[in-house]
Amino acid sequence: MSVLEVDNVSIHFGGVKALQHIDLKVGEWEIVGIIGPNGAGKTTLFNCITGFYSPTSGSVRYRGMDITGKPVHERTKLGIGRTFQNVGLVKNTTVLENLVTAQHLETDYDAFAGILGGPATFAEERRLADRAHQILELMNLDGVAQARVADLPYGMLKKVEIAAVLATDPDLLLLDEPGSGMGPEEAHQLGDTLLELRKQFGVTIVMIDHHVPLVTRVSDYVYCLNFGEVLTEGKPDEVRRHPEVVRAYLGEDPEEPEASTVAAADAPATEQAREEYV
């Protein structure tokens, strides 16, 4: 049984067909990458999977359960965690406080007990803080545990957001551009971290990122979207070299995909697109 199945999902906003007949499957402990140029529909697909959008047609299943009509909080309870393009953290509090807050579904006391306080409440708060410290240590973020989130650079904020989602104890982790704002070396380190997270937490990962080398290095399987449709799918190197993928990213019309990739510097594309692709 697949962990996640997206079956023939389409979503329309008025006359705009944002997604058209999307099929996607994610197996246990897989890392699946989703690439594609801006406006391809990648984040819209994430929004359909996590419940922020309701698809016009099609279905989303999690471990065989149809969750198409379930609200966001119920999907979170099932074990689906998600990061965002724009960092979703409480920026005026510390990194540690964000991770403790993220574990609110795990608390064993109600709001009234939390207001009054007491030995059991304090013991539970210590347990949540200890678990937060363990996650930060695994993410190499223990040195910024007491730092205010608003004072951190953007690349580190993305790592903190992943840590906060891990604190919710997800079974399926959806990462929306985790490498955004990172240089090549940072992105490489992030890739190593994602591989370690899968090993340590036994988590299944679906990731969107414009940094194609990052996606193809860590993913077991890759989908490429363009204009709201699946352009191609397959093993990472096959997708990266596919002529239609090269054309979508670099504006080329190659005869031989490998040759066109080498000649990317001569393609009529922006420097940013070249950097993301090669």
Rank of each mutant, 00 (worst) to 15 (best):
G183R: 04
Y109E: 11
T270G: 15
R240V: 07
Y62D: 05
G14A: 08
P71S: 05
G202E: 05
H21Q: 12
F201Y: 13
I205A: 02
I35F: 06
A264V: 12
M156I: 14
L78V: 11
D142A: 09
G51Q: 13
V60F: 02
P268R: 12
D209R: 07
P184E: 10
V16I: 08
F201D: 03
K70I: 10
Y109C: 14
I135T: 00
T193M: 12
E276V: 00
I11R: 06
P184A: 11
A132D: 02
T261L: 15
K70Q: 15
L105A: 15
A129C: 04
A120R: 15
H21G: 07
E229C: 02
V72K: 03
A18V: 10
V262G: 08
M1F: 01
N226A: 13
D266Q: 13
A187K: 12
E276P: 00
T261G: 02
Q189G: 00
V215A: 07
L24P: 05
R148L: 04
W29G: 09
M139R: 00
E255G: 14
V6A: 09
Y62H: 12
V32Y: 14
E137N: 00
E125A: 05
Q134M: 04
V246M: 15
K25C: 06
L197C: 02
T83P: 02
D192R: 07
R240K: 10
L172E: 01
T44K: 00
L4M: 05
R240W: 12
I49G: 07
V149H: 08
Y109W: 13
D23A: 07
G191M: 08
T94K: 08
S180T: 06
A248D: 14
V16E: 04
T94M: 14
P119N: 04
F84D: 03
T204L: 10
D176W: 04
K17T: 08
I34P: 01
G79Y: 11
V100T: 09
D253F: 09
L173M: 07
A123C: 02
I35K: 04
H12S: 14
Y154E: 05
R126K: 10
A167W: 10
K17D: 03
K25V: 10
V239A: 11
H21W: 02
V90N: 02
Y223T: 05
V165Y: 10
V262T: 11
L141D: 00
P254K: 10
T93I: 11
G64H: 06
D151C: 03
N8F: 01
D108Y: 01
K91F: 07
V245Q: 09
G79H: 10
E185A: 09
E74Y: 01
A129V: 04
P268I: 15
V144P: 02
L116K: 05
T270H: 12
L214C: 08
A263R: 13
T107I: 15
E97H: 01
L175T: 00
N86A: 04
A167P: 05
V165A: 11
G183M: 08
